[in-house]
Design a protein around this nucleic acid. Structure first.
Lengths: 266, 266
DNA sequence: CTGTCAGCTTCCGTTCACCGGAAGGCGGGA
DNA sequence: TCCCGCCTTCCGGTGAACGGAAGCTGACAG
């Protein structure tokens, strides 16, 4: 920054973004002091920058003066490919699956070492699950996570397995060797399965959504009560949906290739 | 800014946000030059700031080097109250309505002079509609829009009616006097109706979702084929859902009042 | 192969926007 | 009433930000 900064080398842009980064799912509402502390900024600096974010409506203030993420940031975030392309394309297929099964349907992408949940459909008859749009869950203990992991590049799989594998239930596969074998079986079968590995009482199947001749960028899966025995019978529908989604994704990717042609539709 | 800026008085934060603002639904993918031009920044400046945004993952670059909105911005945007509170609370109710009717269900809030669509459920049997999550549609020609407008503060209604009222079909209410009467009827009935006012062949009903003894912050509505005659029979279900949502919203607002208690759950 | 062009990236000297301690205001609890 | 925590405003010193220019890269034409 210009001026007598106590911490040189941190740019204005980085500090501004640090204020946004102070918010997370456990802290969606922050007072100025909390925000400044979490972002590691002096109060006066946080106040000035938060004022600019508020003016742009990246932040809002409630009646008590606390800050919240603003509508404009939400709107802007919706333009991310994960939402504007993947989710838009996948949603009709997911609705078909939901209407046919009334079970939880998840759409997730891999981000870093997490499965990031992009969309979730569920109803009152579905088993309650902890997932949530925007949630991050482990790759080795969820259906969509295993599908993403099994079909990732070998180097990534190795890197993932070398990290600690947290255990969530007594059925979680937390041993490297067993996880490797499980991933091999997943590739052979073409779909992933979990059995109470994340949550007791819940079972899942998932398939990868291959994209433009590369590693899968996304995965689609069911989560059902573990007493449902015919779980594997859901796989063909899942696979058909995944293929439909992949085809539509590749079509829209082709649209772009010829020369940065933007979709003229609104 | 520090330095020899050509346009003094524009802060770094404002320029950084201007880069994000260069993206919209018609331009979700921008080259550096396009982004710089749309944000009104010199190329070198845009390059530097875009690099910082990319480092934070507010922006991503695709294989051709074009910029897109990044995953982290999408994640952060999900923390906005409109998504994390309103949408989360409303979704189960909307699913009930969808399962019972198989028609389009919309949830919208008022933002400025627009109805901003927060969530939309629809299936293959529903009439296709132009709405989309994050879409902005006019208050005087949509069901949820009329519900929001009719129950807004009188000063706002006046201000809205004094602006030009664009016509979308020959049924759009584009005259101030007729719109006033229509809004009065809407308040009397307790629900809004539209009849091919936005799109030929589509009809809608909507109800406001009152919130903490104030103006409605949101509205909930159906959009169906205009040949469906029993549209008004859907209103009681809509009203029940709106009341359920309002109650849940007020409960969670109360949770906060005692002293900034944050929801401990993840 | 060579020339042209458009867009991207890097460099660096100048300068003013940024920084944040300090002081003042505000509200709530004792 | 005083105290305390939080928010807001002020202001002089200074180094981060600025952006023109130069170099780079890749695509396309001749």
């Amino acid at each position: 920054m210009a001026g007598n900064s106590s911490e040189s080398g941190r740019t204005v842009a980085a500090r501004t973004l640090a204020l946004l980064g102070a918010f997370d799912v456990a802290h969606p509402r922050l007072s100025l002091s909390e925000m400044a502390r979490r972002a590691g900024l002096p109060l006066a600096t946080a106040h000035r920058l938060a004022g600019e974010l508020e003016a742009w409506r990246a932040l809002d203030r409630d009646e008590q003066g606390c800050y919240r993420i603003g509508l404009r940031l939400w709107e802007t975030g919706l333009l991310a490919p994960v939402s504007s392309s993947l989710r838009e394309v996948a949603l009709p297929f997911m609705q078909d699956l939901y209407e046919a099964s009334r079970e939880n349907i998840h759409l997730a992408v891999r981000d870093g070492f997490d499965a990031l949940y992009v969309e979730k459909l569920s109803g009152h008859s579905s088993v309650p699950v902890i997932s949530r749009i925007g949630a991050r869950l482990p790759l080795h203990a969820t259906g969509v996570g295993k599908a993403l992991l099994a079909f990732a590049e070998p180097a990534f799989i190795r890197a993932y397995c070398e990290r600690p594998l947290p255990r969530y239930t007594r059925y979680t596969i937390a041993e490297r060797g067993r996880l490797y074998r499980e991933l091999t079986r997943t590739r052979e079968r073409g779909h992933a399965e979990t059995n109470e590995e994340m949550t007791l009482g819940s079972t899942s199947v998932a398939v990868p959504i291959p994209h433009t001749s590369g590693a899968p960028t996304a995965a689609l899966g069911f989560v059902v009560h573990s007493h449902r025995s015919e779980l594997v019978s859901l796989v063909p529908a899942l696979r058909a949906a995944a293929e439909g989604i992949a085809q539509r994704l590749n079509e829209s990717a082709d649209d772009r290739a010829p020369g940065l042609v933007h979709d003229p539709s609104v």
